[in-house]
Amino acid sequence: MRSERLDEYRERHRAVWPDMIEALRKAGWGNYSLFLREDGLLVGYLETDDFEAAQRRMAQTDVNDRWQAEMAPFFEAGRPDEGFLTLEEVFHID
């Protein structure tokens, strides 16, 4: 994440396009959140039955292509939706 664009990135996510939100929901992205630290670390959290399938469904949408093109300048390299790293849950409490 480009540190000089953090405020703009936050602002853009206060106004995510309604059709992008709808596409995420239809693709199976539930309880989706993004967390941004001041040094540019961006962490996303979502709940889905099948992450790879949900990711493929989003990749097939026109709105995702448009959104990723808009967001690409905020990142050092590549499309942000192609750089996901997944983490293993090692503890959870309700």
Rank of each mutant, 00 (worst) to 15 (best):
W17Q: 11
D39L: 05
L87D: 06
L85K: 14
H92F: 08
I93H: 15
I93M: 14
E8G: 04
D19W: 02
D39S: 11
Q55L: 10
D49S: 02
R66L: 13
D7E: 14
Q55D: 13
E89R: 07
A59T: 15
L36R: 02
A53R: 11
D94K: 15
A59C: 14
A53C: 03
W29S: 13
A27E: 05
A15G: 03
W67R: 05
E76W: 01
Y9D: 03
R66S: 13
R56P: 07
I21V: 10
G28M: 13
G78L: 05
L34D: 11
F51S: 15
E52A: 05
L6I: 15
D39P: 06
G28S: 13
D39K: 07
R5F: 09
E70C: 03
M1S: 12
A54H: 03
R56M: 14
G40I: 09
Y32K: 05
L6F: 12
L42F: 10
R57M: 04
L34H: 09
E88F: 05
S33R: 06
E76D: 09
Y32F: 12
L87P: 00
D7Q: 12
R12S: 09
L85Q: 15
E70F: 07
L46Y: 08
R14V: 00
R37N: 06
L36M: 09
R14C: 00
L42N: 09
K26C: 00
D81V: 06
W29R: 12
N64K: 04
L24T: 02
L42P: 01
L46F: 08
A77V: 13
K26W: 00
M1Y: 08
F51D: 13
L85P: 01
W67C: 01
L42R: 07
V63Y: 01
E4W: 01
E76P: 00
E76Q: 05
M71N: 05
L6Q: 07
S3R: 14
F75T: 04
M20D: 04
L41V: 15
K26Y: 01
A72L: 06
A27V: 02
E89L: 04
S3Q: 13
D65P: 02
E4P: 00
L24E: 12
E89P: 01
G28Q: 14
G28H: 13
R12F: 08
